[in-house]
């Protein structure tokens, strides 16, 4: 296992050190004293496990393909944004836009997420162990967004084909949303996903799969139809 210390180094030097270890064959790297630095572990394209001991700033683990970035503290905006594949795990909470525009992989937040978690997601999984802020799932295109706690206002607004699940209360649904009955496949997926990604001590406090609500797009904003004038007025 290799170590990278952030103190006294620029972000360029930190990321170069992380990637240098990976190229040298170290698949497990611990980053110490991150101090909430932005852009930690950006664009790691190998299946390495990078553990950031502490909290990270914006875009931690962003633009990844195949890596695992684990933050033992909290993370700032744009956690793992535009990830192609891989895993980002945050033990604490995440700022705005967690998992924004991901095309694959899994973004796991044990705590809460601020506004717009899973915004414009194009695939993969965004799993929030706690609550999430407003407009989570906004314009979600594909993939699954799971919120174990409560969801904020305008949840799942203007989505394409992302499927959302909420274990707690929803402050308000966004435009063009439909609450759909859970299928047995949904329940199985939820239970298996929570089992896979959340540690037991956290998972045991969360609802089981059958107690989630499922939210999908109503598809009325997919193409303009003048009969749906009211929803368009609000949406646009």
């Amino acid at each position: 296992m290799a170590e990278v210390t952030c103190e006294g180094r620029s972000i360029r030097e930190i990321n170069v050190a992380i990637k240098s270890h990976i190229r040298g064959g170290d698949n497990e790297i611990t980053v110490r004293n991150p101090g909430g630095r932005h852009n930690l572990g950006v664009a790691i394209l190998e299946p390495a496990h990078v553990t950031i001991e502490g909290s990270a700033g914006y875009y931690c683990g962003a633009l990844a393909d195949g890596s695992t970035v684990e933050v033992t503290g909290s993370a700032g905006w744009g956690l793992a944004e535009s990830m192609l594949n891989g895993t980002a795990i945050v033990h604490g909470s995440a700022g705005n836009g967690a998992g924004a525009a991901i095309r694959g992989g899994a973004v796991i937040v044990y705590g809460d997420a601020a506004a717009r978690a899973g915004v414009s997601m194009k695939g993969g999984l965004v799993l929030i162990g706690g609550d999430c802020g407003y407009m989570a799932g906004f314009m979600g295109q594909k993939g699954a967004l799971i919120v174990c706690g409560d969801a904020g206002d305008a949840f799942a607004d203007s989505m394409y084909a992302t499927v959302c699940y909420v274990g707690g209360k929803i402050a308000g649904l966004g435009n063009d949303t439909v609450i759909e009955a859970l299928s047995s496949a949904d329940v199985e997926f939820l239970d298996a996903t929570l089992e896979r990604y959340l540690p037991f001590e956290i998972r045991k406090t969360k609802p089981s799969g059958k107690n989630f609500k499922k939210i999908v797009s109503g598809r009325r904003l997919w193409n303009f139809n003048q009969r749906d004038r009211k929803i368009w007025q609000e949406a646009l």
Binding site: N15, N39, V42, A43, Y59
Partner: peptide, 10 residues
Amino acid sequence: IKVEELREAT
């Protein structure tokens, strides 16, 4: 920060 991220990514 975004500009720095893009610079890091490349």
